[in-house]
């Protein structure tokens, strides 16, 4: 006996209908499966129907000017391999590279990472700092939400029944960085992580913290404290202290509250110092 029924629709309309048709017994979309299948194995998820997205035309990556649109089922490895991502969105490259192993990234997708919304997601903090948006398709309409509005809590998103993530949009190229702390350097989950990005058009910083429950969060006050260019060392230290004070730190099995609190300012300093602000000015 199979734990679930697998369906493989050939069109977006069919996929939406398949997801909706099983409401009540539970359905789940399957992209790379690297998170969903683990949850099914552990009994944290028990969908009666799994809807494979592999035949949908969403394995895309499109640059228009400095804006990047990433199809939701594009494997993370393809995103990491794009020379534009590495050059124009270095923080996104670092965040993608931080997810699992090469073999995992050959299947894992950005849509899956957002849709599953793990509290320790490496991609969500970076997407927050890049002011990324998600484009959703559903039974009645299409809509666009900021990643900040899309992610609700640990494992909870704004996705309505029958709704799917079609793509993720990063509005502009930004000098950026993603730094993390882990028990093991390789193939582990971050205990705490900091994503920073500098917007050349708005002359402002964004800062997000992730790696702990309930969800990655933006720290707008801390970002403001970094000013509108490369911060001086005292300003950066003050921002780190502010982050340490202001961010709501939670403990879980991977790290204590105190450990995370001690690290957040350090990681912020490391991240900001590694960003080449001037890079964005000439673009």
């Amino acid at each position: 006996m199979s734990a679930f029924e697998l369906v493989t629709p050939r069109s977006v309309e069919e996929a939406i209908a398949s997801l909706r048709a099983s409401d009540g017994t539970g359905s789940a979309p399957l992209a790379g499966g690297t998170d969903l299948l683990l949850d099914i194995d552990d009994g944290r998820a028990a969908p009666a129907r799994v809807v494979s997205l592999r035949r949908l035309p969403w394995r895309t990556l499109d640059w228009v000017g400095g804006a990047l649109t990433i199809g939701s089922t594009l494997p993370l490895r393809s995103l990491e391999d794009d020379p534009g991502v590495r050059a124009q969105l270095p923080g996104l490259y670092q965040a993608v590279h931080a997810v699992g192993s090469v073999a995992l990234r050959h299947r894992a997708t950005i849509g899956g990472n957002l849709g599953r919304s793990a509290p320790a997601s490496d991609l969500i903090p970076m997407l927050l700092a890049l002011d990324a948006e998600v484009d959703l398709v559903g039974p009645s309409a299409e809509r666009r939400l900021s990643v900040n509005d899309f992610v609700r809590a640990s494992r909870r998103t704004a996705l309505a029944p029958g709704e799917l993530i079609r793509s993720v949009r990063v509005p502009e190229s930004r000098p950026s960085a993603y730094v993390w702390q882990r028990v093991r350097l390789a193939n582990d989950i971050s205990q705490i992580a900091v994503a920073v990005a500098y917007s050349p058009s708005g002359r402002r910083w964004s800062v997000a913290v992730g790696g702990m429950p309930p969800r990655p969060v933006l720290l707008p006050e801390v970002a403001r404290g970094l000013g509108n260019a490369r911060p001086t060392d005292p300003a950066l230290r003050a921002a780190g202290e502010r982050a340490t004070r202001e961010v709501t730190i939670a403990a879980d099995q991977r790290a204590s509250e105190e450990y995370r609190r001690r690290l957040v300012g350090t990681l912020l300093g490391r991240a900001v110092r590694s960003v080449d602000v001037a890079e964005g000015v000439h673009r």
Partner: peptide, 23 residues
């Protein structure tokens, strides 16, 4: 069987893949 060790790695169209996490 949780995608952490790589012992089950195979190639799918030439790309390394964790066969324990692939239907």
């Amino acid at each position: 069987r949780t995608g952490d060790c790589g012992a089950c790695t195979v190639l799918v169209d030439g790309r390394s893949t964790l066969s324990c996490l692939t239907l």
